[in-house]
């Protein structure tokens, strides 16, 4: 029971990325999140809780529990 409880605590960090939930053991910064999601190197833009995060600030932007992230790219369109 206790180990389950600990796991729940450790995994308590919850993010919503492009509408889907993601759990983390520790609060990652944005660069670490992109690395985990295998998105490093892609041309993309990120909005955190409705605010744009400039690419230059990805490394210093530490994410918090409950953050809502939108990660977008350019695709074909008319």
């Amino acid at each position: 029971m206790q180990s389950h409880f600990l796991t729940a605590i450790l995994k308590a960090m919850q993010l919503t990325v492009n509408g889907a939930p993601h759990s983390f053991e520790q609060n990652p910064n944005l660069s670490q999140l992109l690395e985990t999601l295998k998105l490093t190197g892609n041309r993309l833009a990120v909005e955190r809780n409705g605010e744009i995060v400039p690419r230059s600030q990805f490394g210093e932007t530490v994410l918090a529990d409950g953050d809502q992230l939108e990660i977008v790219v350019a695709v074909g369109g008319g």
Partner: peptide
């Protein structure tokens, strides 16, 4: 040329071809 802005696919292969 016009382009659209959309959520990226999570878990997409890094080497996948892109419009860019």
């Amino acid at each position: 040329v016009t382009v659209a802005i959309r959520r990226t696919n999570i878990g997409q292969n890094a080497g996948e071809p892109s419009l860019l």
